[in-house]
Design a protein around this nucleic acid. Sequence first.
DNA 1: TTGTTATTGCAACATTGTTGCAATAGTTTA
DNA 2: TAAACTATTGCAACAATGTTGCAATAACAA
Lengths: 125, 125
Amino acid sequence: MLKRRNTTTKEAVLSVLTSKRRAMSQDAIMQQIGVNADRATIYRVLNRFCEDGLVHKIIAEDGKQYFAVCMKCDETKLADNHFHFRCTSCQTIECLPEAVHFSVPNGYNVESVNCVLTGVCPQCS
Amino acid sequence: MLKRRNTTTKEAVLSVLTSKRRAMSQDAIMQQIGVNADRATIYRVLNRFCEDGLVHKIIAEDGKQYFAVCMKCDETKLADNHFHFRCTSCQTIECLPEAVHFSVPNGYNVESVNCVLTGVCPQCS
DNA sequence: TTGTTATTGCAACATTGTTGCAATAGTTTA
DNA sequence: TAAACTATTGCAACAATGTTGCAATAACAA
Ligand SMILES: [Zn+2]
Ligand SMILES: [Zn+2]
Ligand SMILES: [Zn+2]
Ligand SMILES: [Zn+2]
């Protein structure tokens, strides 16, 4: 693994993700972030966070990538594989404290899980 | 709802989806299909099938849309909300006979469910 | 056969995400 | 502090996916 360096963009992205406590898309992050940064840079920062296990990526029903901080050492500890909820009204995604349970037929080797529930959140209804 | 008409493309698409018994993307369908059809036409046919409840759409971790026939009246009856398995080796998605169970906090109104497990299928491992 | 209109092909477009490359800047070492 | 090393960035170009407008076509009913 490469040695990471501290940069303004990197810190700003992580700051937004942490404070919002939501899974955000690149364009949402770009809007909320205080600093000027290129689209490609945001993606590269986010993917680096994923590699480092700092952030996890969710693919929503709109086909877009959303990124959320992994709150492993938080009081609201999340299971490794948890459900996500996407509100079609406020366009946000949040991690639900509900673990995904499943069983697969013999021979299937599951490497990753992507579960998204879509609807309207309490704030919007 | 509009009156549907029978067309070559429509029948060819449904035929491929039914025989393969897999969830397929537009480009996979285009390759397998016997007839010449425009990309846009395939999408329109597929979306019409979805509207009519003949087919359901899954968004995979690659961000692409996959379409599968709903086997409601089949011996291998599928639950309304079931898991899907995407093999990263053969690039196919299949409907698993495993229902998705979950509960959400009060106030959340779930309208649709999209659950995809990714890994390697028995044939490829 | 004729009229109605659902469907198609084509082109244009929007969006999302990635990559190559030179320039920049963070970090380490002297 | 100054120099060296290289991780990171901005920019442009690109690929892939999906949608839409519009005129032409073809399915179906009368
Ligand atoms: Zn909302
Ligand atoms: Zn999450
Ligand atoms: Zn496979
Ligand atoms: Zn299915």
